[in-house]
Every structure is written in C-alpha cells, then in structure tokens.
C-alpha cells in the first residue's frame, strides 16, 4: 500500500480535481436542453454509456452523460437540461468559457458485444443523449451488425432532441421510429404513441436481438415487458440508469442501488444482472 503526503496529494488531485474543458460549440436543442461541445486538454478515452462529473468551481458539480461516441480526439459532447443549481449556470456559459471535467466514470457498453446481432435502441426523452454515444459507433460500423433500429420518444414535438442526427441516421439506412406522447397542436410528421407501442410489430428475430434502453425511470419496466413478450432474452437487454451522484468513485453513497454502486458498477447494466436488485427499476 502506498503512503506519504506526496502520494495523497497526487491521489486527491487525481480523484477530485477537475480538468479544464473549453466550450467550443453551444446549440439550443429545445427550450430547456442545450448542446455543448467541449475541447479537453487530452482525449477522454471513454466507452459509450460512461459519464463525466461536470463542475463550475464555486457553484457545484453533477454527473452528466457523455453523448459522443468513443474517439481519439479531445472532444466531449453533452446535452444539459436546465434543471438545478449547476445546470442553470452551465446554461449561462458561452463559447470560449471553461468548465471543469472529471472522468470518465462508470462501466459502459462494449459495442463488440453486439457484433453480428440485430440492435434495438429505445430512447425516452433525455435518454437519447447517452445512447447516442453507443448509436454513433454502431452506425459507423453498421456492416458488422444486423438490422439496426432506434425507437426515440419524447413528450411533444418541441422536446425532440438531435433532430438532424435522427435524419442522418435515417438516411444511413437505420430504421428510426420517432414518436411523441402527443403533438400538443405542434406540427409533427412522425408517429404518436409511447416507445413501447412499436415493439410488438417490430421486425426482429428475438434470438439475434440485443437491446439498449435509456429513458425516464418509469420507462424501463414497460419496455422490458414488451421486449420479453417478443422473446428477447433478459441477458440481451442493456439498461442505462440514472442516480444522484456526488463523487463518481463509489464512496458518497448517493447512487447506491441495493448492494451495488451505480457510478462504478453501472450506469450501464445487463438487465439480467439487475434481477436481485429490487431498487434498480421502478
């Protein structure tokens, strides 16, 4: 075991000290969701589904999903919803401003596990943001996978995220099913309904299908039930969970789901591994 003041100083820096990231692009996605592209000093080296701790010194820190696929450049993409103390301040930042980044943290998806299989993505609301980090590399190597399908749902047309990206994926030959819970009198040329509704009619071979889910807490049980009814095996369903986090390194206790820590053992889980964790899903 290592000891000594110098070691502890380095350890404290490595664990809790954010690295500077410069904002190079900001775009409004919806009235409350803003896209940020951040340039880091070194590559993030992340897996799809991982997250970073984003901070503004003097305001606070919060876990934020990484939205870009893995890559060798220094880029970090995020979509941040104006929801709390920190995100209000993040929304006021401008291109050229600096924010603090720690991470990446957590387990992620390994796209290689999906090679040769049909891949189904189900995204509800903000769930599309972390899923995009997996969809991007899968689409980039589409020939290594079977049929690729994305069901993306949100509350109403004004809340749809990554519209251009969804168009691009559609153009790339991915089946993209775009849904809203209701149009609320806004123009909308796609479907209306819950993300579970297309599942019974999807052309999918349950033996060959792997599914990745991310959305609000209430979504999972219904989607998993619908997939189960189609015969998709529970060990082929991956879920990306959200929890409160204060440290990202398995200590602060906030993200605990029964005996596991979401920040370390997750946030991506194989659904069959959650069977003994009643707190995982609603």
């Amino acid at each position: 075991m290592k000891t000594g003041t110098e070691y502890y100083h380095q350890l404290a820096r490595d664990t809790f000290m954010p690295q500077p990231g410069r904002i190079v692009e900001i775009a409004d996605m919806t009235a409350k969701d803003r896209y940020f592209r951040v340039e880091l000093e070194k590559p993030l080296g992340h897996h799809p589904g991982q997250f970073v701790m984003v901070s503004v010194m003097g305001v606070g820190e919060a876990p934020i999903s990484i939205s870009n696929g893995p890559g060798k450049d220094n880029t970090l993409e995020m979509v941040i919803r104006r929801i709390g103390r920190l995100t209000q301040v993040l929304h006021d930042l401008k291109v050229g401003d600096t924010l603090g980044i720690r991470g990446p943290y957590g387990s992620g998806f390994d796209p290689a596990n999906f090679y040769g299989r049909d891949v189904l993505f189900v995204a509800g609301g903000l769930g599309l943001v972390p899923l995009r980090s997996l969809i991007t590399p899968v689409v980039a190597e589409a020939n290594r996978f079977g049929k690729i399908t994305l069901i993306s749902g949100c509350r109403n047309p004004s809340e749809e995220l990554y519209r251009d990206q969804l168009d691009e994926w559609t153009d790339a030959g991915i089946e993209v099913i775009r849904l809203v819970d209701g149009t609320e009198n806004m123009p909308w040329k796609f479907g209306v309904g819950l993300v579970t509704e297309p599942i019974p009619k999807l052309k999918l071979d349950p033996e060959k299908t792997v599914a990745a889910l991310c959305g609000p807490p209430v979504m999972y049980k219904f989607v998993i039930t619908a997939l189960g009814a189609r015969g998709v095996s529970y060990d082929q369903i991956y879920v990306d969970l959200e929890r409160r986090m204060k440290c990202g390194v398995g200590k602060c206790g906030h993200c605990q789901i029964n005996k596991i820590y979401c920040c370390q053992d997750g946030p991506v889980f194989r659904f069959s591994d959650l069977a003994l964790l009643p707190e995982a899903l609603l």
Partner: peptide, 10 residues
C-alpha cells in the same frame, strides 16, 4: 451569492 452566480439558492 447564488443569485449573483445566476442560480437558485438551495
């Protein structure tokens, strides 16, 4: 301080 920072107190 929170209001000066553009956020809500907690």
């Amino acid at each position: 301080k929170s209001l000066l920072q553009g956020t809500q107190p907690f």
